[in-house]
Simulated assay, not measured.
Amino acid sequence: MTTVLITGATAGIGAAFARRLAGEGHDLVLVARNEQRLGEQATELHDRHGVEVEVLAADLSEDKGIEAVEARLRDPARPVHLLVNNAGFGNKGRFLEVSMADELKMLKVHCEAVLRLTAAATEAMRERRRGAVINVASVAAFVPRGTYGASKAWVVQFTQGVARDLAGSGVRLMVLCPGFVRTEFHERAGMGTDNVPGWLWLDADKLVGAALRDLGHGKTLSVPDPRYKAITGLMKLAPHRVVSRASSTTGRKYGPK
């Protein structure tokens, strides 16, 4: 029996990870801001799958919240074998339309929290010579699209760099880069999605299944869908100027209204 800690666990991709891993018999530590939703989710997963589910209410945009999760990850009496850094959010608006406070909050959650929690988890995992971390980024990491894309690009580069540094230690790291996924993400940010073509949408449960298979195969980067694999492949081959122009055009067509 292993224990998995998931941030942003009450909805979307985080909740899909929780369902899948509980179904496979893993005990869980669920992290999110809403303690009531965490409690309801924990009860449901425990009753359905018979696993132990611990809840930790923490706001990862604040030092206090990050410190609470760091302490849980470092607890030698209750080792965590897989960390899923999934917490994140979007801001509606272009640069200078979003407040600086919200931009800095995004960097705190997407970058600083991921850095600190990955460090806390991998320190303990390296001592045991066993463990894994999945950091959730986005295909937005591969295009120039403001603070969100930049923060997710940092997650991609950071995760792959740490994976190389810890190669041979028994600790695996992988960054997951999904595209549009039907979750609460856009609704929470006040973003309309009626203009997003149906073929671009991914199912969270299928996404998680593909991501876990990629982790099992030792991949450090997972783009778990043929459609988005093709899109990101083309973006890597195209000149930067072309990608930038296409990103701006696509953002106006399919981005939040």
Score class of each variant (00 low, 15 high):
103 E>D: 14
188 R>A: 15
43 T>D: 15
184 E>P: 13
182 R>V: 00
34 N>V: 01
106 M>G: 13
235 M>N: 12
220 T>M: 09
100 M>H: 05
224 P>H: 14
204 A>H: 11
1 M>E: 07
76 P>Y: 08
154 W>T: 14
25 G>K: 00
71 A>G: 05
229 K>P: 00
95 F>V: 05
205 D>R: 02
201 W>N: 11
126 R>Q: 13
65 G>P: 03
252 R>Y: 08
53 V>T: 12
238 A>T: 06
109 V>C: 15
189 A>D: 08
139 V>S: 11
96 L>W: 15
126 R>M: 08
223 V>K: 04
89 F>P: 00
7 T>Q: 09
71 A>P: 01
32 A>D: 05
11 A>D: 12
252 R>E: 13
128 R>K: 03
69 V>I: 03
1 M>L: 02
10 T>S: 13
38 L>D: 11
195 N>R: 14
45 L>D: 11
63 D>F: 05
58 A>W: 04
215 L>D: 07
29 V>N: 04
222 S>T: 03
122 T>E: 05
223 V>N: 07
116 R>C: 13
51 V>D: 04
243 V>R: 07
66 I>D: 13
36 Q>E: 13
155 V>C: 09
28 L>H: 08
122 T>D: 07
196 V>T: 03
49 H>E: 12
156 V>M: 14
230 A>W: 09
187 E>A: 15
38 L>M: 11
256 P>K: 02
149 G>N: 00
117 L>M: 15
200 L>I: 03
202 L>V: 00
154 W>D: 15
173 L>R: 04
176 L>T: 10
119 A>C: 05
35 E>Q: 12
87 A>W: 07
17 F>P: 05
21 L>D: 12
128 R>T: 03
18 A>H: 01
